[in-house]
């Protein structure tokens, strides 16, 4: 069985799906990613599906599951590069990919993760304005 490679770039895990995945490969990717998120402590996952010419309900469900799992592990998942024909087909199929954030390409996906991460830092500072001074 083929496996999808997972790359680490800074604080982000990048998965670029380049092959027509069998269901087993998709499930394996789900498991591999969960392990890598924990092992690396990354806060962002980008799944690039530019090369996928179809996304069926199985792959759709895998994407949703990855997003949920990574959320539990404190990482933001962004799916990028969905082709127009794939998006139109998914709408017709009735698959809404709830809970998944999407972006047009890897670059925009990285911006999205950076923005989400910056927000989180803001909140932390807002919640605890004296964090720095209170520290011994």
């Amino acid at each position: 069985m083929e496996r999808v490679p997972i790359l680490k770039i800074g604080d982000i895990l990048l998965v670029s799906i380049q092959l027509d995945m069998s269901d087993q490969t998709a499930v394996a990717l789900q498991e591999d990613l969960a392990e890598r998120i924990v092992a690396t402590g990354c806060h962002g996952v980008i799944i690039d599906i530019t090369a996928l010419d179809i996304v069926d309900s199985f792959v759709g469900r895998m994407l949703s599951t990855i997003a949920s799992i990574s959320k539990v592990l404190d990482a933001e998942t962004v799916v990028v590069g969905m082709r127009p024909a794939v998006a139109i087909t998914l709408v017709e199929l009735g698959l809404s990919l709830n809970g998944i954030r999407t972006a047009l390409n890897v670059e925009r996906g990285m911006e999205l993760i950076a923005a989400a991460h910056a927000d989180e830092l803001d909140y932390q500072l807002d919640d605890d304005p004296d964090a720095e001074t209170a520290r011994p």
């Binding site: 962004v78 998006a87 047009l104 996906g109």
Partner: peptide
């Protein structure tokens, strides 16, 4: 409507 939903899926 479908176009709007499809665009969202693509991240727009």
């Amino acid at each position: 409507l479908k176009t709007v939903v499809a665009a969202r899926l693509m991240g727009a």
